[in-house]
């Protein structure tokens, strides 16, 4: 009968007297139209198992995507030949003047921490923000978490007590100092040998995770609580921030005192790169351990 009602409406419209629809009626009409809402159509697709069509469409679009990309790769400059557009005056200067301008023997670290230091500053902020995001999601304090978390916490505590971890405990006792030492070596020698703040930081973080898995929360909390985590990461980010904003400000306005580069090759050389490497290493180490601690016990 739907169309007859429409017909009547058209006739009224043609006759020229407009029916004043009451506001409630107009709003209510919108409610009736709810039944063939788009969302019901989507449910229809799932019930009728049409999403197989969806899968084949996706696979076809991905294969077409790969085909187009292979054509692009076919059109790209050759892999590895010297006069590629990428080896232009930008990278030549990084290599040739890199040593005396930044003082870093490892040109990649020199490029990251001196030529393009703004990216690395944004990079350290990405790390810091991801820990803050995970803190936002997973941090549960013992006071007001609901029944389910208490049950999980109790089960973990029991598991922790009875679980015998001889291999890990002995391994951690003897190995962790060397892992941390290795991480510190890589961070400190960032501008001389390959590695640098990021690699060394992750290794140090891994060492702390190894120790935490072996000896559990209480032992780790004596050494590394949330306060020390926040102080270390914020402190090192602040030193990075101060050093770099000083060098950006002085560089841009051609003002101010130049940090000495020292003799290339020994540790205390390459101007600001060593302290920056240490800051980045500390931030990365705290972040990696922070992820582990938040994932296991919901609090650093």
């Amino acid at each position: 009968m739907e169309w007859r009602m429409w017909l009547q409406k058209i006739k009224d419209w043609v006759d020229g007297y407009t029916v004043m629809i009451d506001a409630d009626m107009y709003i209510a009409n919108r409610k009736r139209r709810e039944k063939w809402d788009w969302r019901s159509i989507i449910d229809f697709i799932y019930e009728k198992d049409l999403h197989k069509l969806h899968n084949t469409l996706c696979v076809m679009c991905c294969v077409a995507f790969i085909g187009v990309m292979l054509l692009v790769v076919n059109d790209l400059p050759q892999y590895g030949n010297v006069n590629n557009p990428a080896n232009n005056e930008v990278s030549v200067r990084y290599v040739e003047e890199g040593l005396e301008e930044t003082g870093a023997v490892n040109l990649v670290t020199g490029m990251i921490l001196d030529y393009r230091a703004f990216d690395t500053f944004a990079e350290a902020n990405v790390l810091f923000l991801s820990v803050m995001g995970v803190l936002f999601l997973l941090k549960t304090d013992k006071k007001n978490d609901d029944k389910q978390q208490q049950m999980v916490r109790k089960k973990d505590a029991e598991m922790e007590a009875i679980e015998q971890k001889p291999i890990r405990q002995i391994g951690a006792k003897y190995l962790t100092p060397f892992i941390l030492l290795y991480g510190i070596y890589i961070v400190i020698n960032g501008h001389i040998s390959p590695g640098g703040g990021f690699a060394g930081g992750v290794i140090m973080g891994g060492g702390m995770i190894f120790y935490a898995t072996a000896f559990g929360k209480e032992k780790m909390e004596q050494i590394f609580t949330f306060r020390s985590f926040a102080n270390i990461s914020v402190g090192s980010l602040l030193t990075y921030f101060v050093c770099k904003s000083y060098s950006f400000f002085t560089g841009a306005n051609h003002v101010g005192w130049e940090v000495p580069k020292g003799v290339a090759g020994n540790i205390l050389s390459a101007g600001l790169i060593l302290p920056l490497n240490i800051c980045v290493g500390l931030v990365v180490a705290c972040t990696m351990y922070g992820f582990y601690a938040l994932y296991t016990k919901g609090d650093i």
């Binding site: 990084y94 030529y115 230091a117 703004f118 950006f248 560089g251």
Partner: peptide, 13 residues
């Protein structure tokens, strides 16, 4: 343009 750091255009940020 404000060059970030001591190195001019195509090298620094």
């Amino acid at each position: 343009t404000f060059t970030m750091g001591h190195y001019p255009a195509p090298w620094g940020n």
